[in-house]
Structure formats: C-alpha cells, structure tokens
C-alpha cells in the first residue's frame, strides 16, 4: 500500500513538474509572488525582495539557481525546474521594472557612521554604487530585508554561498559578525 502511494506520488510529482515546464509567464509570476510578494516586496523572513533589482543580476542568479550551482531552499529551486532561458529573461525583466522596496525606517546616526566607514574601507560602493542601487550583475542592497542581507553576507564571508562571486566573498573576509549586523541594519534602511 505504502509502495503504491509512493509510486502514485512520484507520478503526481512528475505530472506537476512537466506542467511546471509548460507554464505561462503570468502563471509563473503568481508562483514567485507567493514568496517574494505581489509587487516583488517580500514580507517573509529569509526571502529577498526582488523589486528594482538589476535585470542582469536576477537573470544570472536565476540561471545559477536553476543549474544547482547556487544552492537555495528546495521550494525556490523547484520553481525554476526546466524553465527556459527566454522565460528566465522575462521573469528578470518583470521584477527589475517594479518599484524598489521602501526603506525599513531610518538608520540611527551611529549605525550610519560605522556602516559608511566599513563600506569605504571595503569599497562596497565601487561595485554596488555609492547609493547601493546596484547595476548590471551587481545587486541592489538598498531597502533589502535586513535578515536576508545579514545571512547573505555571512554566507559569502564563510565560503557558504555556493556559486558566489569570488571577489564579493573576498570583500567580506575578516569582517566580524557585529559589523555585518551594522551593515545589514544600515542597508535595509536606505531608500
């Protein structure tokens, strides 16, 4: 009985996946919205906002996730199963055109001072741009969810971000957790 169920589930999953392969862009976007928010502004802890991210950044990350090079939550990876390059480009274009997320309040003066000092030393703005709006393959950090930023930075620093950019990872080597917290608090509060 159990075996039969397993078999049936496998069959159902196969059906779902093949259907996933044939979804239209609006159907896919509805799926993305369940986690990333209707307007690309996430309300879920650990799930990043996508609104206003550079198109190429998302395109590249979506390919890396689909290929299994960047490892993420299985449900996120499953949403990209078998999605063709052309559809990936369309998804990236959609989220890039949305209005960036609003900042999570204003940073206090101490946080802002320390964050700017850290960022100047590590030249974060040379790549992410001084207002942290991102460009091309480099993500927007301004207004991103704080806990997501913190975990992302920890993962780079500790060599856990699979498929991550090696210069990006090297920018965070040796920066203590307390300073990463300051950076995340600051960046989440930038417009």
């Amino acid at each position: 009985m159990l075996l039969r169920f397993t078999g049936r589930w496998a069959w159902l999953t196969a059906l779902f996946v093949s259907a996933a392969g044939a979804q239209s862009i609006p159907e896919r976007l509805a799926q993305c919205a369940a986690c990333h928010g209707a307007e690309g502004v996430s309300a879920i802890s650990g799930t990043p906002s996508l609104a206003g991210q550079p198109e190429l950044f998302m395109e590249n990350q979506l390919v890396l996730i689909r290929e299994g090079v960047r490892e993420v939550a299985p449900a996120m990876a499953a949403a990209l199963n078998g999605v063709k390059d052309a559809d990936i480009r369309a998804l990236a274009r959609h989220f890039a055109a949305l209005k960036p997320p609003p900042p999570a309040g204003k940073p206090d003066a101490g946080t802002a001072r320390r964050a700017r000092e850290l960022s100047r030393k590590a030249h974060c703005g040379s790549c992410h741009l001084p207002d942290f709006s991102g460009r091309d393959q480099i993500p927007r950090l301004a207004g991103q969810r704080e806990e997501y930023l913190l975990e992302a930075m920890r993962a780079y620093r500790d060599n856990r971000r699979s498929g991550g950019d090696t210069i990006m990872a090297a920018s965070l080597y040796g920066i203590a957790d307390a300073d990463l917290q300051v950076l995340a608090r600051f960046l989440a509060r930038l417009p």
């Binding site: 190429l56 395109e59 590249n60 390919v63 890396l64 390059d85 052309a86 990936i88 480009r89 100047r120 030249h123 703005g125 040379s126 790549c127 741009l129 001084p130 460009r135 091309d136 393959q137 480099i138 950019d165 210069i167």
Partner: peptide, 19 residues
C-alpha cells in the same frame, strides 16, 4: 587600492548566463 581611487566606480564587467 590607493586613496585616489577610493571613489572609483570601476567593477568587474558583467557576464551573461543565458543563451
């Protein structure tokens, strides 16, 4: 990175991952 370049906006050039 010398101080003169501290305000630089140079970054590695973006590659493409789609066909």
């Amino acid at each position: 990175k010398p101080p003169a370049l501290a305000d630089s906006k140079l970054a590695p050039l973006p590659g493409r991952m789609t066909e």
